[in-house]
Amino acid sequence: MNTRTYYFKLPLLLGLLIFMIGCGSEQKSDAYGQFEAEEVTISAEASGTLNSFMVKEGMKLNAGEKVGQIDSTQTHLRKQELQATVKSIQTNISKLDAQAEVYQEQLQTAKKDLQRFTNLKQSNAATQQQIDQAQGQVNVLQKQISSVNVQKQSVYAELETMETRIAQIQDQLEKTKVINPLAGTVLSSYAEPNELVSTGKPLYELANLEEMILRVYISGAQLPTVSLGQEVEVLIDKNAEENESLKGQVRWIASEAEFTPRMIQTKEERVTQVYAVEIAVANPDGKLKIGMPGEVNF
C-alpha cells in the first residue's frame, strides 16, 4: 500500500520541482525606467506678423532649414534710411579729401614763394614784409589742412557709428527668419501663419528621436557596477510575452542621490538611496517612443 502511494506521488513532486525551477529562473532586470528625448523649444527672436510658418507636428526638420518668416518691412526701411545716411557721409568725406588736396597744392605754392622771397632778400631784391606775408600764407594753409583732417576724423567716427547701426539692423533682419537650429522631429507646434508674435514666444518644440534616453534609477549598492560609457543591455516589450533586446550606453550618472534620508547610519539604509542614470539608445527605425517603459541590465 505504501509502495503504490510513493510511486503515485513521485511524478507530482517532479512536476512541482520543475515548475519551481522554472519560476526561479525568471531573471529580473537591474533597473527600470522610461524613455525620454532631449526636447528643445524654438522661440521667436523678433516681433511682428508671422508671414509664413511651415511647421507641423510630426515633421522631420534639418538643421539650418528655414521654416518661417516674421514681417521685416519696417526693419528694411530703417536699414535703407541708414544706408542713405552712409552715402551722404561718404560724399562729405570725398568733399573734404578734395578740399585737402586744394590746400596741399596751395601750400606747395606758398612754400615756393616763401623760399623765393627769402633768396631775394639776400640780394636786397625783396623786403621783410614780403617774407612775412609769404610765411603767414604758409601758416594759414597748414592750419586749414589740419582743420580738414580734424573734420575728417569726426566724419569717419560718424560713418563708423552708422555702419555699426546697419550691422545691428542686419542682425535684426536675420532674426526675422525662423531657422531651425538642429535636426529633429517636431513634437508640438504653438503658432500659425499670420499670427502676431513677440520676441520670446514659443513657436514649436522638437527633439532628436534618432537617439532616445532611457532614464532609470539604481540603488547605492548597484552604483559601483555602473560607469560612464558602459555598454548595457536594454529591454523593451516585443509583445505581451516577449522582450526585445537593444544595445545602450551609459552617458550620465547622477552625482547625488535622490530621496536621501536625513540620517543615514546603517548599510541597509544607505542602499535605499536612489541615483538617476541616463542610457543612450539608438532609435533609427523610430520604434522607441517618449514615455515608453524600458529595462536595463548592466
Rank of each mutant, 00 (worst) to 15 (best):
V155T: 11
G64N: 11
V140M: 05
N149M: 03
K143H: 06
K112A: 11
E57Q: 10
K66A: 11
Q69C: 01
N124D: 13
S154N: 11
K66C: 06
K95M: 14
E39F: 06
F117K: 01
H76N: 08
V40K: 13
A44F: 05
D71Q: 11
T73A: 13
V86Q: 07
Q142F: 00
E65Q: 15
G48S: 12
E45Q: 15
K112C: 00
S94T: 11
N119H: 07
S72V: 05
E65S: 07
V86K: 07
T91Q: 13
Q128R: 04
E57V: 06
C23D: 09
T91V: 08
Y32H: 11
Q142T: 03
Q128G: 13
Q137N: 13
Y32R: 13
Q115S: 11
Q104W: 07
M59K: 08
E26L: 15
N62C: 06
L159T: 02
V140D: 01
C23T: 13
L114F: 00
K95R: 14
N149E: 11
A84R: 02
D71K: 06
R78A: 03
A63N: 09
I89L: 10
L107T: 01
V55D: 01
C23W: 14
L82E: 05
E38F: 14
Q129T: 12
E101F: 09
Q108H: 14
V55P: 01
T161G: 08
D132H: 03
Q90G: 00
I131K: 01
Q151G: 03
N149W: 04
S72C: 04
K56P: 00
K111A: 00
L96V: 12
V148M: 03
E158A: 11
L159Q: 13
E158K: 06
Q115G: 01
V148E: 03
S47D: 06
I42Q: 05
V40T: 15
E65W: 04
G24R: 15
K121R: 12
Q153T: 14
R116L: 09
S29G: 13
T118Y: 04
K28H: 09
Q106A: 06
L159P: 00
D30I: 05
N92Q: 15
I21F: 15
A46D: 07
T75A: 07
Y156N: 08
K95G: 13
I93L: 15
V155C: 03
Q142Y: 00
K56Y: 07
K60W: 06
L50W: 03
M59P: 01
Q83K: 07
D113N: 14
S94C: 04
E158C: 04
V67H: 01
E160C: 05
Q83V: 04
Q34E: 14
V155D: 06
D113G: 02
V86A: 09
I89V: 10
M59F: 09
Q133K: 10
V150W: 12
S52V: 08
Q144S: 12
A98T: 13
F117E: 02
L61T: 01
V148I: 12
Q99Y: 09
V67M: 03
L120M: 12
V67E: 02
V150M: 14
T109H: 11
Y156I: 04
I42T: 10
L61Q: 02
D132K: 06
S154T: 12
S29T: 11
